[in-house]
Amino acid sequence: MDWLYVTEVALAGLGAGALYALTGVAFVLIYKATRVVNLAIGEILMLGGYVFFGLVAGAGLSIWAAIPLTILAGAALGAVVERALIRPMLGESPISVFMVTIGLGSILAGVVELGWGADPLRLPEFIPNTPIFLGEAYLAPKVAYGALVAALLIAGAVIALRFSRGGVALRATARDQGAAYSMGIDVGRVFSLSWMAACATAAGAGVIVGAIGGISPTMGIFGLSVLVVVIVGGLDSVAGALVGGLLIGLVEALAGSFLGGEYKLLATFSLLILILMVRPYGIFGTHEIERL
């Protein structure tokens, strides 16, 4: 066995996994605060890629202006979706809310296809492309920088959740909504802010994912891997999203390289089933998962 090759595949897998983890954190944020399983997270990520493309290729903005604007657009989308689609569903069965997010995903995919067509597009190059070696192992610079940014953002999210006052409000709301209200916490605002933060994160992740692999209206299937990630890690656990993301990225890369691309999904779903048999709430999950 060529260990250098194995190492390179594993590194690439961990790099991709960091982006799964980042998007997984976005998913977890929403689930923690609002108990909504947001199946549109992949499409929101895709929309981020397209908004960035539109701002740069269409509106002619510089890349460094387009990135913050894309993230802002993600936040705005989160605010609107939460207020217009999710808040009115409060108290409805989880399955109805879940269906609403599936519908949202299809709408976003449709809008993108109408606006930009069905063909894959390449994002303008903006990530440095000097080759990166870790020891002897080569790592694609885009993947490496993407993973680095993802790691920084995840660290930021963890710190904010653990140490900020807002983080306390979110965790309190996640634990006991009624008690959170009785503390004077504006639970509606917690909902709104977590949707905004999550969708901003997903849109930002979309820029990185698009820069690595290009964008297309079917890019939302990224969300399928993210769903596996958060089920493996536990729907309400940031640490779980991190571990799950790296694990799934690694398994997909190894299965893809050594068994063939068609085994990728088989491998991840086998892992999913295996883990759920041992730990029904995921590796780090605590709360009871709603039956869907």
Binding site: V168, A169, A172, A180, M183, G184
Partner: peptide, 11 residues
Amino acid sequence: ENLTAATFSLS
């Protein structure tokens, strides 16, 4: 942190 949560009552 429980006490911090209660500080939102002062907002």
